[in-house]
Design a protein around this nucleic acid. Structure first.
Length: 315
RNA sequence: GGAGAGGUGGCCGAGCCAGGUUGAAGGCGCUCCCCUGCUAAGGGAGUAAGGGUCGAAAGGCUCUUCGUGGGUUCAAAUCCCACCCUCUCCGCCA
C-alpha cells in the first residue's frame, strides 16, 4: 500500500520508494495524476450533491410539479455522467501507476535490489568446505530425494524423508514456541488465495509469473504466508490501541522460480515448494523501527541458539 | 453438486412484497448529565465509519457506505443481473 499523502509531503518516504527502483518521473506522474484526480473528484461531488438535492425535491413535490422537475434532473444527470467518466479515467490512471511503485524502504537501506546489501555484522567463523554439499549429503543420508521429486512432480521438487522430516517438524515447533513466548499468535493460514489478496499483498501484477495459478477455481498458491497473513485484517480499520498485532505464520510456500534456471539447481534450495515460519507484524508507522529491531533480535536469537554462524545484512 | 433461507450501524433486530421526508425504527451496550445513602433501579441527552474540501483549531460543507460488483430510475437498504459468504435439507466423499 502506497501512502500518496506521505509520498507528496514526506521527502523520506519518497526517497525510500526511489531507493527501491521507482523512478522520479513515475512518482511525479503519479502525484500529478492524483492531484488531477482529486480536483475532478470535487467537481463530480458538487454535481452529485445537486443531483441528490434535485431527487429529494422531487420526492417532496406535488404530483403536478414533478414532470418538469424530473426533466431538469435528467439533464443534470447527463452532465454528471460525463463528469464521472472523466473522473473514472483519472482514477484508473492513478491505480495503474500506483501499482508500479514499490514499498518505500527505510532511509538506512542501501539503494538497489537484493544483491546490493551491506554487511552489518558477521557472527561466527566461516567453516571449511564440507566433503559433500548439502545436496550430496542429504542424498547420501536418505534425507532428500530429488530424483523421486522430479519423477513425481518435475524438476525442483524434492522429497524430504526420515530424520530430516523429524528435524523440520522439531525446528518448526521449537521456533513457534519461541515466538509465542515473544507475543506472537501462531497461525496456519490458507495457502490458496484469491487474486485480490495477491494484489493487496503487493505480489500482483509485478510477480505474477512467479505464482502458481489454479485456473479452474481462480485461486493462487501463495509463495509465502505473508499473503494470507496480510489478508487477516484486510479492509479493517485497526484501533491504534490494539497495535502491534504480531503473527507467526507457518505454511507451505509455492514458487515457480521462473527465470532462475541454472541457479541453485541442486538439493532443496530454490525448490518449488517448501515450508516456512514467517513473522508478520501490524504496527503503527512510528513504532515500525522498534518492531523491526525486535524481529532482528529474535532472528539472531534463533540462529545463535542453533549455534550457526551468520551475517546480519541491511538490504 | 441439487433445493431452500439469509447477509442491515459496536451487538441484536425492523424496514424490502406496494422505490422518495430512512444514514436507517426499536432494543442492548457505551458516554455525559440529573435523581438516589448502600455494586441496583429511574429520568434526560448523545452515540457508525471512511474520503474530498475549507479552517490554526473547534468545526463547516460535501460525497460514499445497508455482503461485493454492475444495472434500471430524477430517486434504490427496497426493483433487476452476476458474484462472495453463512445456515438448513439432500447427494457425494481419499
Amino acid at each position: 500500500m502506497i501512502d500518496l499523502r506521505a509520498l507528496l509531503n514526506d521527502p523520506k518516504y519518497r526517497a525510500g520508494a526511489e531507493k527501491k527502483g521507482a523512478s522520479s518521473e513515475l512518482l511525479d506522474e503519479l502525484l500529478e495524476s492524483d492531484s488531477q484526480r482529486r480536483a475532478l473528484q470535487t467537481e463530480v461531488e458538487q454535481l452529485r450533491a445537486k443531483s441528490n438535492a434535485a431527487a429529494k425535491d422531487i420526492g417532496k413535490a406535488r404530483q403536478d410539479e414533478r414532470p418538469a422537475k424530473i426533466d431538469a434532473a435528467s439533464e443534470l444527470k447527463q452532465t454528471l455522467g460525463e463528469a464521472e467518466r472523466v473522473y473514472n479515467d483519472a482514477q484508473t490512471k492513478v491505480d495503474e501507476l500506483i501499482l508500479q511503485v514499490p514499498n518505500p524502504a527505510h532511509e538506512s537501506v542501501p539503494a538497489g535490489d537484493e544483491e546490493a546489501f551491506e554487511v552489518v555484522e558477521v557472527v561466527g567463523g566461516t567453516p571449511g568446505p564440507p566433503p559433500l554439499d548439502h545436496a550430496g549429503f542429504g542424498e547420501s543420508m536418505g534425507w532428500t530425494d530429488n530424483a523421486l521429486g522430479a519423477a513425481v512432480s518435475g524438476s525442483r521438487f524434492a522429497y524430504l524423508r526420515g530424520a530430516a522430516v523429524l528435524l523440520e517438524l522439531a525446528l518448526v515447533q521449537w521456533t513457534m514456541n519461541k515466538l509465542v513466548g515473544r507475543g506472537f499468535e501462531p497461525v496456519i493460514p490458507p495457502v490458496l488465495v484469491r487474486e485480490d489478496m495477491m494484489i493487496d499483498a503487493g505480489f500482483f501484477p509485478t510477480d505474477r509469473n512467479q505464482v502458481y495459478e489454479v485456473t479452474s477455481d481462480e485461486l493462487f498458491l501463495v509463495g509465502t504466508s505473508e499473503v494470507p497473513l496480510a489478508g487477516m485484517h484486510r479492509g479493517e480499520r485497526l484501533d491504534a490501541a490494539s497495535l502491534p498485532l504480531r503473527y507467526a505464520g507457518f505454511s507451505s510456500c509455492f514458487r515457480r522460480e521462473a527465470g532462475t534456471y541454472g541457479k541453485d539447481t541442486r538439493g532443496i534450495f530454490r525448490v518449488h515448494q517448501f515450508d516456512k515460519v514467517e513473522m508478520f507484524i501490524w504496527s503503527s508507522p512510528d513504532k515500525s523501527g522498534e518492531e523491526h529491531a525486535r524481529l532482528l533480535e529474535i532472528e539472531r536469537e534463533i540462529i545463535d541458539d542453533l549455534g550457526l554462524p551468520y551475517r546480519v545484512i541491511n538490504v
